[in-house]
Amino acid sequence: MPRLPTALTCVVIVACGLGVRALWDGAFPKYAGDALYTALIYALLVLALPRIRPLVAAAVSAGLSWAIEFAQLWEIPEPLRPVLGSTFNPPDLLWYAVGAAACWLVHHRLRAQQG
């Protein structure tokens, strides 16, 4: 994948995450944020490894998101809480998978279009 569009995708994902939090209250922005968190990890993987296969990127991004969520079962150091969170929430695991699956679908289709 070309690096410039991938880098711009990272910026758009962050903007979407901030926008969702600014515009809505309740469960929607929280779970959208979970999916977008995983999408950002996915995009950063593609940025770092442009030839990564979509399935591998999806598995790694979901796996890292899950690992961070499970780490919240223990004490997360205070400086890391804004990025890693502090409270384990089982439904987050589903939304991380949704984010990874959505990214896989888009990435897979883009690669198919490129030949």
Rank of each mutant, 00 (worst) to 15 (best):
P29A: 09
A59H: 07
A58Y: 02
T38P: 04
A62Q: 02
P50A: 01
S61Y: 05
G26P: 01
G33F: 11
L55T: 05
K30Y: 14
Y42E: 04
D34V: 00
W24N: 10
A39T: 05
A57P: 04
P50H: 02
W24D: 13
L23K: 05
Y31G: 05
D25N: 12
L45K: 02
R51F: 00
I41T: 13
A57S: 06
A62P: 00
R51Y: 00
A62M: 11
L45R: 00
A43D: 03
A39K: 00
L55I: 10
A39D: 08
A48D: 11
D25L: 11
A57K: 01
L44T: 05
L40T: 04
F28T: 13
G33N: 12
A27T: 10
A59G: 15
L44S: 06
L36Y: 03
L49G: 01
P50C: 01
P29M: 09
A35N: 08
D25P: 00
Y42W: 10
Y37F: 14
R21F: 07
A27R: 10
P50Y: 01
V60Y: 05
K30N: 14
T38N: 12
V56I: 14
A35P: 04
L23N: 03
Y42M: 10
P54K: 06
R21K: 15
T38M: 10
V56R: 15
W24C: 13
Y37A: 14
A35F: 03
F28I: 14
Y42Q: 08
V56P: 06
Y42T: 06
A62W: 03
I41W: 08
L23S: 13
A35L: 10
G26I: 02
V60S: 09
L36H: 02
P54D: 06
A59Q: 09
A58W: 02
L23W: 13
R21T: 13
V60W: 08
L40M: 12
V46C: 09
A43Q: 05
L45D: 04
A22N: 13
A27V: 12
V56M: 13
D25A: 13
G26L: 07
I41Y: 07
L23C: 08
A59I: 11
D25S: 14
D25M: 08
L45P: 01
Y31V: 00
L49C: 10
V56Y: 14
I52R: 00
G33H: 12
V60G: 08
A48V: 09
W24R: 10
G26Q: 03
L44W: 05
L47V: 09
A58L: 05
Y37V: 07
L36S: 01
V46F: 03
